[in-house]
């Protein structure tokens, strides 16, 4: 469904991605693992067209989207939950959802009222502005906002960072529910054990290159991986 082939990208004169190969099938959940500064967020930003790919090819749902503008890539069916949440501070919860909502491609999709059922805490604050929400509520809103696009692929970049354990549990519960709906996901997160439970396959990125990929079982079978690439 999504395939990156030898993608290179960077900022200014610095090259962050030096040939990333990665693939996600329909309904598949994959993770992107690696230490800070290895290119995880840049990979996500390049997929969405927020950073220009200098070489290589990105295909999504059978189309070449390399160099396409971000709004067109998103409309093809990618819901982004960006690093740092990036909630619009001056829009209410309801407005942020209405602004980006798109009709479902087929059958029962995500509507504003359905995402508010998934996150009851947001329903209570529907008329509050983004900047008045707590960190956990902002994170739920960022996920809800990506869902109402009715994507076929959800990308979550550090969706549990800086959240209290109880709120974190709430987010993992929601992701497990989305998994049951058959939504494909690309996850970036620090909580390795949770990722190993939830995801089908894992990619380890180092210095802008994928250095390992495989299933959760394969990852657990190679104890050296964690120390070498994740520093844990």
């Amino acid at each position: 469904m999504l395939r990156l082939e030898a993608v290179e990208a960077g900022y200014g004169s610095s090259r962050v991605l030096c040939g990333v190969d990665l693939a996600i099938g329909p309904g598949e959940i994959i993770t992107l693992l690696g230490r800070n500064g290895m290119g995880k967020t840049t990979t996500v930003r390049t997929i969405l067209g927020l950073v220009r790919a200098r070489a290589g090819c990105i295909r999504f749902r059978g189309r070449d989207v390399t160099g396409a503008p971000p709004h067109r890539i998103a409309r093809l069916g990618i819901g982004l939950v960006p690093e740092g949440r990036r909630i619009f501070p001056n829009l209410t919860v309801l407005e942020q959802l209405i602004a980006v909502a798109r009709p479902p491609r087929e059958g029962r999709g995500w509507t504003v009222s359905r995402v508010l059922e998934l996150f009851p805490a947001l329903a209570e604050r529907r008329h509050q502005r983004g900047r008045t929400l707590s960190g956990g509520e902002q994170q739920m809103l960022a996920i809800a906002r990506a869902l109402v696009l009715n994507p076929v692929l959800l990308i979550l970049d550090e969706a549990t960072e800086g959240l209290a354990p109880l709120v974190r549990r709430e987010i993992w519960r929601a992701l497990a529910a989305l998994r049951r709906e058959g939504l494909a996901m690309l996850l970036i997160d620090k909580h390795l054990e949770r990722l190993l439970e939830l995801a089908d396959r894992h990619y380890v990125i180092e210095k802008g290159r994928i250095v390992w990929s495989g299933t959760g079982a394969a990852f657990r079978a190679e104890p050296g991986l964690r120390a070498r690439y994740l520093g844990v």
Partner: peptide, 21 residues
Amino acid sequence: MWIRAGADDRETIAALGVDIG
């Protein structure tokens, strides 16, 4: 809403499928 969201953060509104141009 698009105008206000674009004023806050034009990159994020574009990544969420709105043609901000």
